[in-house]
Amino acid sequence: MSASAAPTRDAPPPAKRRRRRQVAPYVFAAAAALYLLAFTATPLFRGVDMSFTDTRLLNPTGGRYIGFDNYVSVLGGAAFWNSVATTLVYTGATVACSLVFGTAAAVLINRAFPGRTFARAVMTLPWAVPTVAVVLVFRWIYNDGTGVANQVTGALGLGQPNWLIDPRYGMLAVLIATVWKVTPFVMLVVLAALQSVPDELYEATRVDGADGLSTFKAVVLPYLMPTLRVVALLMTIWSFRRFEIIFLLTGGGADTNTIVVHVYREAFLNSDLGTAAAIGMLGLVLSLIVTVVYFVMERRAMLQEGDR
């Protein structure tokens, strides 16, 4: 393949069968492990280190250790807690909307109707559009006065809010763009899961005379649950760390200052790398907690499903 495949070629010659079995996994895993160590763990630990210093952007190596001062001031200020609340709103709404719309779209597209292939292609399109292009077109749609969003709300008699500036609408604007972009991923995965639902399951309920919605709830939804849980976790983690679409739309203004945007602004607008690193670490702890809660719930759900 490429240069990085080379280490395995230098693998110890296949000496004895028993030995080889032990060596092979380490050779296979080495590249990924080294990569993680060099480009993820190292910067992460440097970040941890930095969070205990007063490092400034203009003098990145001249920080002094100041203990927990950064954490104390971050936890004591309102800005961080606001960004936590904003992150929770953004994440919760993104996960809920993308899961509901994605599942609905998958159910819709799962059965044959005229034009299905075309509809499916268009519905998955947003996933392929690069984020910066998404931002550009949504900025134009939200454009003050002449944008499509204002034309629609104006026609509906809802006024013409300045979507990306007004704190009452900033989050909604960012959410619409985000959900538009990420829902196709949910749809694709759920669609694939739906196609593995055995036909007999549908047949059984159809004979019972159940209507569409109750069939879905009683038969299809339980079948989809494991898939939906995995997708929910991925959507949660990804929403927690999503940066570009928010920052490029509002710059973190209009009440959209999520933790990650807050980190960036603290580092590059306030030039305070130490504080930025501390905020980042606290955010990381938060998403770790969410992940652990998820795995606990997942285990419980699996046990319950096992009971049935």
């Binding site: 990924a32 492990a33 993680l36 480009f39 993820t40 763990a41 190292t42 910067p43 992460l44 440097r46 970040g47 930095m50 990145p60 190596t61 991925l234 983690i237 990804w238 927690f240 760390r241 940066f243 933790i259 990650v260 945007v261 980190v263 960036y264 580092a267 790398l273 930025a276 690193a277 980042g280 670490m281 955010g283 990381l284 998403s287 770790l288 992940t291």
Partner: peptide
């Protein structure tokens, strides 16, 4: 470790990676 990278915000690693 592989799964955890999914949790790491790029913005957090930006400065350490830049200096590295």
């Amino acid at each position: 470790g592989l799964f955890a990278t999914q949790m790491l915000p790029e913005a957090l690693l930006l400065v350490p990676l830049y200096s590295l």
